Every structure is written in structure tokens, then in C-alpha cells.
Amino acid sequence: MEFTLEPVGFVRGGRAEVRDDDWDRERAVIELDARFGPEALAGLGDFSHAEIVFLFDKVSEAGVQTGARHPRDRADWPLVGIFAQRGKNRPNRLGVTVCGVERVEGTRLHVRGLDAIDGTPVLDIKPVLQGFLPRGEMREPAWAGELMAGYWA
């Protein structure tokens, strides 16, 4: 089965190159494709956060990984499967991030903390609703907490 997706927009601004950590200081704009008018973003400015689905378009097909690897290539962290981490070299190269909504201006969504670089194709935008946040207690391995220690800061 095959699907074709067209970007709903593109990231403008923020980082020009991939670099881990300190993403929360980044400000960017998601500029909608010309087929959308301002009504597509109507009401989104009332939310504090949005979930952005995007394509890691700089990852080549040859760079895609399907097995296990050490996150960030750190041998001191365990070997884990591609679906047990959030690395960019995923089979479908999809990224998902919850970021802060700063404001909406027409067909431009201003965000902070989006870990996608300038020019990245955006596939979908969803408001973050409290009812869709994790229910119950969360757990994660120690290496995941170490990896995230400087990711947003």
C-alpha cells in the first residue's frame, strides 16, 4: 500500500541546520501552502500548543534505519529499536513535535520550540488538547531522560 502526502506548509526561519539540543529558544513560522486561506488556522491562536507533523526531508532513503542502534550513537546508552527512539532516520522520516503557539497571522503560524529546520515540509498541524495528553503515570528508561536533559533548554 502506498500513500502520497502533500505538505500543508513549510517551516520558515529558526535553525538552518540540524543540531541537537537547545530547541526551546528557536522561533519559527509555519507558512501554509497557497491552497489554504486564513480560515484554515482560525481558532488555533486560542491554544497554547500545537502538534506539528513534519517530514525529515534531508534524510536520504539510504540513511533510513529499520533496526536497533544506540541513540545519538552513544555506546553508553543501550541498543534500542528505531521505534523505541525519536531519531530522524525513521522508516517514513516523520517527525512530530508539540510546540508553543505564539500567534497566528493570516496563513502564518508563529511557534517556539519546533525542532524542525528552515524549509522543512509540514504535513499536518493539530491543536494540543488536554484530553489527548497521556493518561495515567508515564515511564521511560534512564537514558531517555539523559538524552532530553538539554534538548529543550
Results as ranks from 00 to 15, higher is better:
F3N: 08
F3G: 04
T4L: 09
T4E: 10
E6L: 13
V8E: 02
F10I: 07
G13V: 05
R15E: 02
A16Y: 04
A16K: 13
E17P: 02
E17M: 06
V18L: 13
V18D: 01
W23N: 02
D24P: 00
E26T: 14
R27M: 05
A28D: 01
I30F: 04
L32E: 02
A34G: 11
A34E: 14
R35E: 00
F36N: 04
F36Q: 02
A40M: 07
A42G: 04
L44K: 04
D46W: 00
S48R: 12
H49A: 12
H49T: 05
E51M: 10
E51G: 06
E51T: 08
V53L: 14
F54I: 11
F54Q: 04
D57W: 15
D57Y: 14
E61M: 14
Q65N: 11
Q65V: 09
Q65S: 07
R69W: 02
P71V: 09
A75E: 12
W77F: 05
L79K: 15
F83R: 11
A84F: 10
Q85E: 06
Q85A: 13
Q85V: 13
G87S: 15
K88H: 14
P91K: 10
G95F: 07
V96Q: 12
V98A: 06
C99H: 03
T107V: 12
L109F: 01
R112K: 15
R112C: 10
L114H: 02
A116Y: 01
I117M: 10
G119C: 10
T120R: 05
P121L: 07
D124E: 11
D124Y: 05
K126M: 06
L129S: 09
Q130E: 15
Q130K: 14
